[in-house]
Measured scan of single mutants.
Amino acid sequence: RSLKHLCRLKIRKCMGRLHLRCPVFMSFLPLPNRLKAYVLY
């Protein structure tokens, strides 16, 4: 697996499933929209 994929998995694990599904939580993250979309992919 690529480093990019492993990073996405780690971020998702740290955030938890409930936060990933909450659009309000995701909108408050201080991340560029492209990065938010990548994490959610």
Rank of each mutant, 00 (worst) to 15 (best):
L40D: 08
P30R: 15
N33I: 03
L9W: 06
R8M: 13
R21N: 12
L40G: 04
P23E: 15
L29F: 03
R8V: 11
R34S: 06
C14R: 05
S27E: 10
R17D: 09
M15R: 02
S2I: 14
M26A: 08
I11A: 02
P32K: 06
F25L: 13
M15Y: 01
S2G: 13
R34L: 01
L40Y: 02
P32I: 10
R1A: 03
P30A: 15
S27R: 11
R21C: 05
K4V: 07
V24N: 14
L6C: 13
H19S: 07
V24E: 15
N33G: 13
K10M: 15
L40S: 08
S27V: 01
L3Q: 01
G16E: 15
K13Q: 12
S2P: 02
R17W: 15
G16S: 13
R8A: 12
C22Y: 07
M26W: 12
F28R: 12
L40T: 05
L3T: 01
H5D: 05
L6E: 13
I11L: 08
S27A: 09
F25S: 08
C7D: 03
L35C: 07
P30W: 12
L9E: 14
H19A: 13
F25P: 11
K13L: 05
V24R: 15
A37E: 10
I11M: 11
L35F: 12
Y41T: 13
I11P: 01
R8K: 12
L35G: 00
A37Q: 11
Y41N: 09
V24G: 14
H5T: 07
K10R: 03
L18P: 02
L3K: 02
P23M: 14
L18K: 01
P30C: 13
F28G: 08
L29G: 04
L18C: 05
M26G: 11
K13I: 08
C14E: 09
L9R: 06
N33C: 07
R21I: 13
R8C: 10
C22W: 13
L6M: 10
R12V: 09
H5R: 05
H19D: 05
L40M: 07
L35A: 03
R1V: 08
A37V: 03
